[in-house]
Design a protein around this nucleic acid. Structure first.
Lengths: 136, 136
DNA sequence: TTTAATAATGATAATCATTACTGATTACAA
DNA sequence: TTGTAATCAGTAATGATTATCATTATTAAA
């Protein structure tokens, strides 16, 4: 059984991820952390994200793009991903717990959870589009 | 405007993907196609999958594992992925079209669709577990 | 305090899925 | 036929993530 030791890098990483409302990629976190700790390496970011996920303090969000996103909010909630800028947003919709049971009854598989992801164009990108139209 | 020309490789790929109930990876499709066409290359599989997706005849399914899965059933439906073997199954549940509007009203973003993915342990893996217990 | 055990680090190499490139081949409209 | 553009196989490149390794830092016990 491996016990965690304190590390400044992990603490700063978790503080940063907890402080943002967005759902950053490992690379974005790396860039931010380097401002305070110029020697931190990308491997350390990935390694500590994995440890925090294992500890149940962080969740990984996969949205179909090439890079994963991370979230310090581990409570079950739904996301929206913008097809245009690939940013991930939280949605304030109630979680449908009953769906798991419904899926289990229908399929016979043991269902432990679900993830619901909406996609489309975010407000920021919609406005950018409108500005482009005007300039046309 | 680029027009598609006939290709045996693309036809066989689509026939194969249409014929299976599973949701194979590019590499699995490659392995199967090589039985008939030993010289086909993995790049050709990926290139034609992309063309078929663009043509709306195939959809890509991302389930949080390292590799993408593909599905010739492009109608909107939900999936189950096994945490154990990573296989992807179709679910026969009715699609909740109303969710898009609900998410749009709540967030203000333009919502064009959603994907709902259940996870847990599939029947095949549950049985394998049971067999292990017996042998213990 | 020292010390000993071991977790964590930065740097870098390796991996793995996917994409891009290239020169040869093929489909197909004129 | 023939011109041309799509497609191919083979291979190199890419990009995200993971593994390795020698060194450093944390922690609990002496």
């Amino acid at each position: 059984m491996k016990t965690l030791k304190y590390s400044r890098q992990r603490e700063e990483l978790y503080d940063l991820l907890s402080s943002v409302k967005t759902h950053p990629t490992a690379d974005w976190l790396y860039g931010e952390l380097r401002k305070k700790m110029p020697n931190i390496s990308l491997g350390t970011v990935y390694r500590n994200l994995a440890l925090l996920i294992e500890a149940g303090k962080v969740q990984k969000i996969t949205v179909g793009t090439s890079t994963d996103h991370f979230d310090a909010n581990t409570s079950n909630h739904y996301h929206f991903v913008c097809n245009c800028c690939e940013r991930v947003y939280d949605l304030d919709m109630e979680v449908m717990e009953n769906l798991n049971q419904e899926a289990e009854e229908q399929s016979g598989h043991k269902v432990t959870g679900h993830s619901l992801l909406f996609y489309g164009t975010c407000n920021a990108c919609k406005e950018k589009e409108n500005r482009k139209d005007v300039l046309q």
